[in-house]
């Protein structure tokens, strides 16, 4: 596969992502912010972008959105659980849902 087609794929994905963000935010802002892991200023900004601005943002050789997990070790544990009880999906969802919380991190409360 040529570099050109990869670049196209990245830009397509960027634009699809941005359009999805706008659609979700329009439908139900708080739920969308949870699904997308966006904070308020970013949600407000992305919701107001024009079509032209979306295309502008999407045209880059880097992906505009990031992975919902930032710790490979954590994700390994979800995927390679020796005593898996069919809970991998719910485990992954739980870890993403509490990724931004500070509870129990560092000093004890």
């Amino acid at each position: 596969m040529g570099v050109d087609s990869l670049l196209d794929d990245i830009q397509d994905l960027n634009l699809s992502y941005l359009l999805l963000v706008q659609r979700l935010l329009r439908e139900d802002r708080p739920t969308a912010m949870f699904r997308l892991k966006l904070d308020e200023p970013m949600a407000d900004l992305l919701a107001t972008l024009s079509g032209k601005q979306l295309v502008q943002l999407a045209r880059t050789n880097q992906l505009i959105c990031r992975l919902g997990f930032d710790d490979a070790e954590q994700l390994t544990k979800v995927l390679n659980n020796q005593r898996e009880q069919g809970l991998a999906r719910i485990h992954a969802a739980l870890l993403m849902a509490c990724a931004d919380s500070d509870v129990g991190k560092g000093e004890a409360r």
């Binding site: 949870f34 904070d39 719910i90 969802a93 849902a97 509490c98 919380s101």
Partner: peptide
């Protein structure tokens, strides 16, 4: 799972 979702909604949205 439920409580983490709830908390995230209360705190960040």
């Amino acid at each position: 799972l439920f409580y983490s979702i709830y908390r995230s909604l209360v705190e960040s949205s």
